[in-house]
Nucleic acid binder design. Structure first.
Lengths: 155, 155
DNA sequence: CTGTGATGCGTGCATATACACGTATCATAA
DNA sequence: TTATGATACGTGTATATGCACGCATCACAG
């Protein structure tokens, strides 16, 4: 008889499997980043703001493939914590996001922790599998309809 | 020069890539299930309750690898909608979850929709990649520390 | 019977995520 | 200069997720 015990999760649903993987890997990164006080989602936003200079929310949303309105709220804690600056821009419609000094500091602390997790991940999972993963991500995003923001605008 | 345009998301963070994949595939399944009025997460819970008979919340949590307290709330809409029954049990601590008649009905409607998505997914992604995915999921869950509920109880 | 660890539940709090709407401003054609 | 589509934002609402805590009950050793 095969292992009839504990670790038996033969969920056939591809989606739920990806979601479970997402939860598990998120836990791993969050634990690694714990000393910095950042969640991996927040680390990601800060890193993108840092890398892609001052940008507005919509641009950041496109960059990370997140619903814009999700971003509006996800950025809130970061601004409250003084990690980012949300300044008005010449175009009164938009606002410019950039890292605050404190944000730079925290990122300096967090990056090594993230790199550890990242390195461990590459070693454990292996580059081949990671490439498959990246391929799948791209593929899936292609399959999914364009996000709400771009969909049915005034149709 | 390579494609310098639109679809360029070379996020190096393995975790964020999995999260993006999770969001994308969730959108696909949610759209497929839309006629039934279920989200894929809800479909999954109903399917598990249906398949694994009457069980309590903790057992279901272990089954789907979800935090128990998450489940407490995720089940709420399903009970409100009259899809599941949350009945007291002989042991007053626990409660028995089972599908209500309406739940069976809705699942009857939803299953073909889920199967469509599932089939499309298998075709598009390919069995090989899906197996890699399942392997990764198991691997990641092994790496992640045991969920909170089982961790440091009274330590 | 009584103490104690194990088990089962629910809540407060905080974050993540998306959709439906509504509003303001820009840019440009008419 | 004025209508109109495109662009940028924020809010209301609802679900998903997990952690820290606290409470009740069971099972069992003593």
């Amino acid at each position: 008889m095969a292992t009839k015990n504990s670790l038996q999760k033969p969920s056939v649903c591809v989606c739920m499997n990806v979601r479970r993987a997402s939860r598990a890997i998120t836990r791993i990164y969050d634990q690694a980043l714990e000393p910095s006080g950042l969640k991996v989602t927040q680390f990601s936003l800060l890193a993108n703001i840092d890398a892609h200079g001052p940008l507005n929310i919509s641009a950041l949303a496109r960059l990370v493939t997140l619903d814009r309105t999700t971003l509006v709220r996800n950025l809130r804690p970061l601004e409250s914590a003084g990690l980012i600056v949300n300044a008005p821009s010449s175009d009164p419609r938009e606002r410019q996001l950039s890292l605050a000094d404190k944000g730079l500091l925290v990122m300096g602390q967090a990056r090594p922790q993230w790199k550890d997790a990242q390195r461990k991940m590459r070693q454990t999972v292996g580059m081949e599998n990671l490439q498959v993963l990246d391929h799948l991500t791209t593929l899936l995003e292609g399959l999914a309809n364009i996000p709400a923001q771009e969909r049915g605008r005034h149709e």
